[in-house]
Design a protein around this nucleic acid. Structure first.
Length: 571
RNA sequence: CGGGGUGUGGCGCAGCCUGGCAGCGCACUUGCUUUGGGAGCAAGGAGUCGGAGGUUCAAAUCCUCUCACCCCGACCA
């Protein structure tokens, strides 16, 4: 492709609206332009990248035995109401009404659609296992779109769905998809990490995310991974070993009410009482679908609301407002405690069970109780609700410490079970003649997000460094001075030769100054650049430059194409 | 949804406080020169100052309302 015949609007300056490197580069390299919040045009270079990524995805999905289909973007509300996700997704879902005022949905995922699609027609155990996928635009009405394609309201995804007769079949399908995902992301050039994750609104029995690890600020999720074994989990899901601390060997003391005027935070109370925050137990009040629940957690820990929400099996979970706190505890916010708290479910983190002589709120203004022990109150349920932290001990090998990484989620896989086949009535007849719901799985890859993740993972201060498998072009030829007939001829000869060898080639035929072309080349990040200029031609040579390392090799004009192809092979 | 910020030519910004000719850099067009890391000179085109209402002799500037976008938080299949 000739630069002058395509559209690559590069920017010299950083766009004002971009914060993270990959977002700035998406805009500066002329890959995308925003239409409205969270919605982007994909310009010619980006289109090439997306096609290369989707091609890899297609090849590996097909190789795994999955069958490609295309499902509608526009869905009737009815199927979402049937599965119960109309309420679960709520405002996350892009919704509209048609002229008849019927509710419609712009799909964020397609479990409901595919389940309706096969219902009544896929009906024998002989027809499965079946895996169908599509590459399709998706919508999510993000409360706050940001970071370019990382958190958009419209994006492209590959989503696949499997149908099996039982859990064992699902496990096979699930592992097969995980395997395909490793192949896909490795081909895209990533070091990928598969981590355990929460199932969220998807529902089901288990899930994993595929994360690209980045050391920049561009990561959007924190993951914890054991430094000794293979354990790795999203922060929402990560657990750690409960360590009984030193104080648990103390002799139990008599509890006592203490006056703590205006001391509401953990810091204030422990500072005032001259004890560490690990000697205090926070009692946090939540409204779980209207019911008030108390969550107890050690003072120096953070609560993991996802874990609490999962334990309570509620749709909405939020901190109780002050008036409810007052009603339940009889005190202002900041003095809630488990002793004498009635009519409220008390959920405690297991770590609490290891503690002695701790501080709790007294359910009375300006008062706490010291030397509290487990016998002093009743715990209704014990459930891990604390956020695991870096440095804690791995729950799997019980030895290694957990380390935190910043990651970008580019893929996820879910074991759905029969949630959707039950709700939408997709059943088959087994060998014994019994009617049973399909056991399903669902598997996503964010195509547009993967492109941005590549930029985040592979760039330097001058621009993008595309992995060769997903680069918009393989070679970038720069005639230093396009007005010079010899340079022009050599450049275009090379352009044709490389194309004849099957490569995707971009030639910068603009009448621009060399500096402009070099800077744009560095910015858009084609893996190999070939400079054709007076300096080299004097010796009958052109320069082959590797973008990643900026290594330069001179090659004779007549051997340039074959030499460039060799370098490509080993890149 | 709470808090903060920004809307001025395609992009990046100044001007606003203290009302008085709408500016700068880059980009764009034309000409000449220049051509190995973002050229020089000259000439030129391009802006309802996000929108509506108000105050005033006069509003980019002050007031009210509103819309959009960005950031922090909440949220996040």
């Amino acid at each position: 492709m000739r630069w002058t015949k395509t559209y690559i609007p590069t920017l010299r300056e950083d766009p004002a609206d971009a914060v993270i490197d990959s977002h700035k580069l998406l805009l500066r390299a002329g890959l995308v332009r925003q239409l409205t919040a969270g919605v982007y045009n994909y310009l010619p270079l980006m289109q090439k990248v997306l096609l290369k990524i989707t091609q890899i995805v297609r090849e590996e999905m097909d190789a795994s035995g999955a069958i490609e289909v295309t499902m509608p973007v526009l869905h009737p509300a009815e199927i979402w109401q049937k599965s119960g996700r109309w309420e679960v997704l709520g405002k996350e879902q892009m919704r509209m009404k048609d002229r008849h005022l019927r509710d419609l949905v712009l799909g964020a995922t397609h479990e409901e659609v595919i389940t309706s699609m096969v219902r009544g027609e896929l009906k024998s155990y002989r027809q499965v296992p079946l895996n169908m996928y599509q590459i399709q635009v998706k919508f999510r009405d993000e409360p706050r779109p940001r970071f370019g394609l990382m958190r958009g309201r419209e994006f492209i995804m590959k989503d696949a769905y499997t149908f099996d007769v039982d859990e064992a079949g699902l496990k096979v399908a699930y592992d097969k998809m995980a395997d395909a995902y490793f192949k896909i992301f490795n081909r895209c050039g990533f070091q990928i990490k598969m981590v355990e994750s929460d199932v969220g609104a998807m529902g089901g029995t288990g899930a994993h995310e595929f994360m690209v690890l980045v050391d920049t600020a561009g990561g959007e999720e924190v993951i914890l991974a054991c430094e000794r074994c293979e354990y790795a989990a999203n922060i929402e899901r990560a657990t750690s070993l409960v360590m009984s601390d030193e104080s648990s060997r103390e002799a139990k003391k008599e509890k006592a009410l203490v006056y703590t005027p205006n001391m509401k935070t953990v810091e204030e109370v422990t500072g005032f009482l001259k004890v560490g925050p690990e000697k205090l137990v926070k009692t946090l009040l939540y409204q779980a679908d209207g019911e008030t629940v108390a969550a107890m957690i050690r003072g120096d820990r953070d609560i993991n609301e996802v874990k609490l929400k999962n334990h309570l099996r509620c749709l909405e979970l939020e901190m109780s407002p002050p008036d409810i706190v007052m009603k339940v505890t009889g005190a202002l916010v900041g003095y809630a405690g488990p002793i004498g708290l009635s009519g409220v479910r008390i959920v405690a983190d297991p770590e609490i069970k290891t503690m002695v002589n701790f501080v709790v709120g007294a359910n009375k203004d300006d008062s706490h109780i010291i030397n509290t022990n487990l016998e002093d109150f009743k715990i209704d349920e014990v459930c891990e609700i604390r956020k695991a932290e870096a440095g804690e001990i791995c729950p799997r090998c019980n030895q290694g410490r957990l380390k935190a990484y910043s990651g970008i989620e580019v893929g996820n896989i879910f074991m759905l079970g029969t949630k959707y086949s039950d709700a939408l009535d997709a059943k088959f007849v087994d060998a014994e003649g019994n009617e049973r719901p399909f056991v399903m799985g669902s598997y996503g890859i964010g195509i547009t997000r993967t492109a941005q993740a590549a930029i985040e993972a592979f760039h330097d201060e001058k621009g993008i460094i595309w992995p060769k498998t997903i680069a918009p072009y393989d070679f970038h030829i720069i005639p230093i001075n396009i007005e010079d007939e010899q340079q022009k001829k050599v450049s275009f000869d090379l352009y044709e030769q490389l194309q004849n060898l099957g490569f995707d080639v971009l030639i910068d035929d603009r009448d621009e100054r060399p500096g402009v072309k070099f800077n744009d080349a560095d910015l858009i990040g084609i893996p190999i650049r070939i400079s054709v200029g007076e300096r080299g031609l004097k010796e009958g040579a052109v320069e082959i430059v590797i973008r990643r390392t900026m290594e330069v090799e001179k090659a004779p004009v007549e051997k340039a194409a074959s030499r460039a192809a060799e370098i490509w092979e080993i890149l």
